[in-house]
Nucleic acid binder design. Structure first.
Lengths: 207, 207
DNA sequence: ATTAATTTGTGAAAAGTATAACATGGGGTG
DNA sequence: CACCCCATGTTATACTTTTCACAAATTAAT
């Protein structure tokens, strides 16, 4: 299938979370108009986005919540379980290790690493104890996790990313404030950027 | 001045962090080409972005790191101190409260609130003790914080946002997996969306 | 002083996204 | 069944954003 624009994929993940909620509330049908209202976008956008992948609705009726959710689940690649390691047991690393929501979506956090001797061996959650970064190579080779979360200082992030790519990691979520040079997919989540962006728009009060 | 596209503002924040690092390394001059290489974008993009706000470089030479940094600082609105409250003392709320990087950029976290009685009164960082959500109204009216971070469950996020807007909060960073209906600027940081987006691109290995 | 090598700033072109518009299919009602 | 209403899927249009291309400015060298 052809390449899908990134904005579309992002919205797909948002549709998914919306459908999850509808399903919890036992709502069985939803129209593009209803979805668009919940998400403050245009209904034509919803339909266009979905049309990249096929025709999941019924004219005059709308979409089956259950069915659409399953379709998006499949499109996003959430049907298989994804194994995740976290690099860095600082504030963010630990928060993610404890964040229940991630595990609900079929992501399994299998290990957390740090280089700080005071942190190594400490318990982060019921299942996770901080491992030494020296164990990283062996762990990755043996357990083959697919995703790495970089929650380390900026200076060490890129060398680590390069190493992880070589070890076979397939994608990275990068919380460090740097641009990585590796060639696997990366999602950047620099929290300070969100603050700075917000402040700009507050200052001019437009969006 | 005219409206600035959001992608431009986001990149501005990224240039800023890059310039910070250059300045730390005592580098005084930088060209759009050098910046673009560090950030894996086009040099013309860098120049175009900056040209929204004026002409800060010298032809044949490049940009003064110090001067450009100061300009962007001003454009983003980082010259004044911004006062921030955090709603929700769960994993993410606490991690943010402890996250040093935010304070470095002139953001001051002044309070953290939760509704859970077991959390109220607990110490989150050296300066922050979890306050009861019941104190929120009075606190906001009295201290006039500008920014609120929503790190609360999805169900309560929107009512809270509406209330915060009424109380005079000017911008929101929303970690909750919902779209808010308030009309002040909001930056959404749904971490699960980043995971899902990443997985899509891993699955097709394109970006 | 002229030439060559840089690098900016910007208007024009290209690429990428979002919105609108509408034909088509489906369901309900009398 | 004939009619009307509804909501999708899709083509066409409008808009946004990125990239290109080049004139103008600066420096260094001959």
């Amino acid at each position: 299938m052809s390449r899908i624009p990134k904005p579309v994929v992002r919205r797909l993940a948002v549709y998914y979370r919306c459908l999850e909620r509808l399903q919890q509330n036992k709502i069985e049908k939803v129209s593009s108009k209803e979805l668009s209202k919940m998400l403050k976008i245009k209904d034509s956008q919803v339909r266009k986005d979905l049309s990249f992948f096929g025709a999941f609705g019924r004219r005059g009726v709308g979409y089956s919540v259950k069915e659409l959710r399953e379709k998006i689940r499949e499109i996003l690649g959430l049907n298989k379980q994804w194994s995740v390691i976290i690099l860095g047991a600082g504030n963010i690393g630990k928060a993610l290790a404890r964040y229940k929501q991630i595990e609900k979506d079929n992501f399994k956090i299998v290990a957390i690493f740090d280089s700080d001797k005071r942190k190594i061996g400490t318990q982060v959650s019921q299942e996770l104890i901080v491992k030494s970064i020296e164990e990283l190579d062996e762990f990755v080779v043996k357990n083959k996790p697919e995703i790495a979360v970089l929650a380390v200082p900026a200076e060490v992030a890129n060398p680590l990313a390069e190493k992880l790519e070589k070890l076979g990691i397939r994608g990275i979520i990068c919380f460090a404030p740097v641009t990585l040079t590796c060639s696997i997919p990366v999602e950047y989540v620099d929290i300070t950027v969100f603050f700075k962006t917000l402040v700009h728009f507050i200052s001019r009060n437009t969006q």
